[in-house]
């Protein structure tokens, strides 16, 4: 029983990441009708927002203290980060909380990147075949990934969660759950909730939903749908970026983390039903949990290697049984 609860909890935070990325993918797809293979790269860029902030915050001044020496006899170097110099204890707190603080940076940065991508590249591809969209965003993903690689190197850069959240919660002896994963789960639920609230409760969201249903009619009513869809693409980029920022303490970011997540997220979107936002979230959590069950030792000894392929197997089965996915609507992407 303990093992089952533990696996469900483990699956939830991975599922939360899948759900966030799949949500962004679906948003972009549902509004613009564009299949965005660069979405994983946006996730990666978000993670590197956190890396950048941490690097900036930990820029150090080096003072040499001539009165004290190191055990090797050289004068002791005292390294203090600039922020700590300037802000004192607040600086230390800021460094400790660099990952959550990067959210504040990631939001405008990702919005800017998202809008720039949409206006600069993707809008030229509305009328092109889906194959072209896939190819151009695939190329874009490679480019973004390589740029990050040139700047930050090929190795992964570990990020620390704030000290207060770096421990684990021991519910029982067998169930030990890191605080940060809990934070991630709550955070992603908040983000998902915010996106849904934005779409359901605001006028802007109402127009967007109407546009997703019937773009032409909304356009005929004299509403500039395009501009709203551009902003929605920006929001999708923010969602992916935030998922990346908060994921950094769980898995150290490297330049190809986006690609690894992207393939899975596409599977998630397909399982959930292309174009269905609740479907994407549901399928994300579901597949996260399924995957974490499959990586239990008992199951792995029964069917070796199942943890590597379970998601794909589930996707194949779902597509064969319910070709539109769990919550897919009729008529989406069926030309």
């Amino acid at each position: 029983m303990d093992a089952i609860i533990l696996q469900i909890m483990n699956g939830l935070d991975k599922g939360a990441a899948y759900a966030l990325i799949a949500l962004g993918l679906t948003l972009a797809f549902g509004t613009l009708g564009v299949v965005n293979f660069a979405h994983g790269a946006l996730f990666m860029l978000g993670a590197f927002c956190a890396v950048t902030l941490q690097k900036l915050l930990t820029l150090e001044t080096v003072k040499i203290d001539p009165t004290r020496t190191t055990p090797w006899g050289t004068p002791l170097e005292i390294r203090t980060p600039y922020v700590q110099d300037m802000l004192g204890d607040w600086g230390r707190v800021l460094i400790d909380y660099s990952v959550p603080v990067s959210i504040l940076i990631a939001i405008p940065v990702m919005l800017l990147i998202g809008v720039a991508l949409e206006r600069g590249l993707i809008r030229f591809f509305y009328k092109r075949p889906h194959a072209d969209q896939i190819l151009v965003t695939f190329g874009l993903a490679i480019v973004l990934q390589e740029i990050v690689k040139q700047i930050f190197g090929a190795n992964s850069i570990p990020q620390a969660a704030p000290a207060i959240a770096s421990g684990s919660l021991a519910i029982t002896d067998a169930i030990v759950y890191p605080y940060w994963r809990m934070v991630y789960l709550v955070f992603s639920l908040l983000v998902i909730g915010a996106v849904f609230a934005f779409l359901q409760l605001t006028t802007f969201g109402m127009v967007v939903r109407a546009g997703m249903q019937d773009r032409e009619t909304v356009g005929l009513l004299g509403i500039n749908v395009e501009r709203r869809f551009t902003i929605v693409f920006g929001i999708a980029a923010i969602v992916a970026g935030l998922a990346g920022v908060m994921y950094t303490p769980i898995v150290p970011p490297d330049y190809h983390m986006g690609m690894d997540f992207l393939v899975l997220s596409f599977v998630v979107v397909v399982v959930g039903g292309m174009g269905s936002l609740p479907g994407a979230v549901l399928a994300g959590f579901l597949l996260g949990i399924v995957q974490s069950f499959a990586s239990m030792n008992e199951i792995k000894s029964l069917i070796p290697g199942i943890d590597q392929i379970i998601i794909y197997l589930v996707a194949v089965v779902v597509l064969l049984v319910r070709p539109r996915g769990l919550m897919g609507r009729k008529g989406v992407m069926e030309s």
Binding site: I134, F266, V267, V270, Y312, V316, L319, M333
Partner: peptide, 11 residues
């Protein structure tokens, strides 16, 4: 269409 691409990718 896109489903086919994703399925082959998944396989």
């Amino acid at each position: 269409g896109i489903y086919f691409s994703i399925l082959t990718l998944a396989f």
